[in-house]
Design a protein around this nucleic acid. Structure first.
Lengths: 193, 193
DNA sequence: AATCAAGTTGAACGTCAATTCAACATATTC
DNA sequence: GAATATGTTGAATTGACGTTCAACTTGATT
């Protein structure tokens, strides 16, 4: 049996450079489109933004759901890192307030994130996995604040994301948005503090 | 010139009885479908439920938006009546709490209502008109409670519908839902009461 | 430069849902 | 029981979108 080396004129095993570039362009375009249009953003639109044909999206990501999965994963990673950075803060209430304001900030920037984090049915697998990873981190921060008597004893991690679903996201609604956040923050405080 | 009466063998000017019946059936089917499926409910499904062909829906309502408009109008009428019944209640805080709980109840029953009342873009004309009619009624109740020092001085009518956008609506989430409402109610109370 | 695996293309296809309309049916009037 | 305005039907049209794939390019290797 002859070895491959003798007759094979080449061995390109790694990814081609143009493919890498396209992968990056598509991810960037997808992030932007999903952020502005939500999860229903059209594949054709993403392809146009990225400067490639639709087929290339499917070559790289398999399906729309596959692409959305990766975009969502990246976003949840940011959230995860953010939550980790709060875990050892000195002021437990401040940490909880940062959770609320941090999640609010994400939603303002990203309609897909807003939709995905709240959707109870139709959840794609990655999102529900990501939520399962995030909720405990939020719950840990809540637990600390509850132990200090600063937060309602019945508050759960999932309540926060539900409460932020209605957050006004328009640029022109900054005022109402701040009022909204103050109401939520007052609502989750413990009665005696 | 001869009068029409002499040669016209008939003069059916009013609506036919079967048409009336179909109109009613379609409205009933549409209400049910929009309530369970939201505004994206399919016209074919409504037609099937009503026991007529799609064409009949268009004969009566012109378009899907036309049909949805009428359904929404009916729902907003219920809300309007409900708000009117609260205007002269003795306890201003109780009235505000009823607004919150009443709107919550509607959302649990009706996905279309939930979607339409919160959508900031893509608003069909009827919905935004209906909201313009409802907000003052809510604001009046808020004003009374604020005058009595029972509600945050900065609360506005539009804040309440925004706050209820995230309300969990599943049958299995009654517990979280009640927690959610308690948080909202605490959040809108004035600090010194 | 020659080679070819890897990558790209975009027209074509399938599905789904809104809408139209020409042929058909019937409630109502006389 | 006609006559006909009114109403109904549902197949066909249209448009939007996700997905596929056979033909075509191109980057990397020798």
């Amino acid at each position: 049996m002859m070895t491959d080396d003798l007759k094979s004129p080449k061995k390109p095993s790694a990814q081609r450079s143009d493919a890498q570039q396209n992968h990056g362009r598509i991810m960037a375009a997808a992030k932007a489109r999903f952020a502005s249009d939500g999860p229903s953003a059209a594949m054709d639109a993403i392809a146009r933004d990225a400067g490639v044909a639709v087929g290339t999206l499917y070559h790289h990501f398999g399906s729309k759901e596959g692409l959305l999965n990766l975009v969502i994963q990246e976003h949840f990673q940011v959230v995860t890192d953010f939550l980790a950075s709060l875990q050892d803060s000195a002021d437990p209430w401040w940490a909880v307030e940062q959770v609320v304001r941090g999640m609010a900030k994400r939603q303002i920037k990203d309609r897909a994130f807003k939709t995905m984090i709240h959707q109870h049915s139709n959840l794609i697998e990655t999102t529900s996995q990501a939520k399962r990873g995030i909720d405990p981190a939020i719950q840990a921060l809540i637990d600390r604040a509850q132990a200090a008597g600063l937060v309602r004893p019945d508050l759960r991690a999932g309540d926060l994301s539900a409460l932020l679903a209605g957050l006004p996201i328009g640029d022109d609604q900054a005022e109402q948005r701040e009022r909204y956040l103050l109401i939520v923050l007052q609502g989750i405080k413990s009665e005696n503090a």
